[in-house]
């Protein structure tokens, strides 16, 4: 992998490790607040009256931004990962099916994909998120259901190419069923391109998760997610801009990391 891809991978690995280790890295709990009068809106680097060091300051309730960032990473990264799993699963299923079966079913599946691609994703997200009770599970389902189309198109395009290869004909001659040929022969050859698209989708998912939570339609406060953190930072933008700036930087890091990895995978496939 080219150096830029390794940097991206390192960024993602460090952030994922930080999310896993959040309870040990965070000085206090994500919703723990000190004396609200003495500890609210402490600037980054301040030490409060009970001697706790606040690397990124505190918010309007005196909660430690660094601790909330770490715990928010768990929610945000987990939700985005699961959403990506849903969208990749659905995309591979639909795209693969369209490639393997021929005729009318295939045309219907492709038409469905083209149609879904033409929908404004955020409008759908808003609808789905607003009509049901907002929760992390809903965000996973809605992001998954609105993110499968590029994966389906990619799977279809690459699978059709693979299905024309001689080894597929060989397997068919040996009596391999269509499902077996797809899973055993086609999918492993499509996987490298899928990996690049999946990484890119992960970056998108985390950004959209935060967007939904930011609008109050995703993960609900007081649970810390990067979106709820940015949203609460927006309310205190005048006197405590760090509350919203810090989680945003983390978010951008993840998206940049995912883009770098996806680019590297695309340019020199494994």
């Amino acid at each position: 992998m080219r150096p830029s891809g390794r940097i991206g991978l390192a960024i993602l690995a460090v952030l994922a490790a930080a999310a896993v280790a959040a309870p040990w890295l965070a000085p206090v709990g994500p919703t723990d607040a000190g004396d609200v009068v003495l500890t609210r809106f402490l600037p980054p680097g301040a030490i409060d009256d009970s001697g706790i060091f606040h690397l990124f300051g505190t918010d309007r309730l005196g909660r430690d931004v660094w601790s909330r960032l770490l715990h928010g990473a768990r929610i945000s990264l987990l939700v985005a990962t699961l959403a990506t799993v849903v969208s990749v699963g659905a995309g591979v299923l639909i795209g693969g099916l369209a490639a393997v079966v021929s005729g009318r079913v295939s045309l219907i599946l492709l038409g469905l994909t083209d149609f879904a691609l033409a929908l404004p994703r955020v409008v759908l997200l808003l609808l789905l998120a607003a009509l049901w009770e907002p929760s992390a599970a809903l965000v996973i389902v809605t992001l998954g259901l609105t993110g499968w189309m590029p994966i389906a198109r990619l799977t279809y395009g690459e699978s059709v190419v693979q299905l024309g290869r001689p080894y597929v004909e060989g397997s068919r001659a040996l009596g391999g069923s269509r499902a077996r040929i797809f899973v055993r022969h086609v999918l492993p050859n499509v996987a490298p391109s899928l990996l690049a698209a999946t990484t890119l989708g992960l970056g998108n998912a985390i950004s959209l998760e935060a967007g939904l939570s930011f609008l109050g339609l995703g993960v609900q406060p007081p649970t810390a997610s990067w979106g709820t953190l940015i949203a609460s930072g927006r309310e205190t933008v005048v006197n405590a801009p760090w509350v919203g700036l810090v989680p945003g930087v983390a978010l951008v890091l993840v998206v940049v990391g995912a883009t770098l990895v996806a680019d590297a995978l695309e340019r020199d496939p494994a």
């Binding site: 940015i230 933008v237 700036l245």
Partner: peptide, 22 residues
């Protein structure tokens, strides 16, 4: 251009407001 493409709109908006408005 990679960095710009990676910025979530609502957060870039937030940063611009912090810098240019406040």
């Amino acid at each position: 251009s990679g960095l710009l493409a990676a910025l979530p709109g609502y957060w870039l908006a937030f940063v611009l407001v912090v810098v240019f408005s406040y």
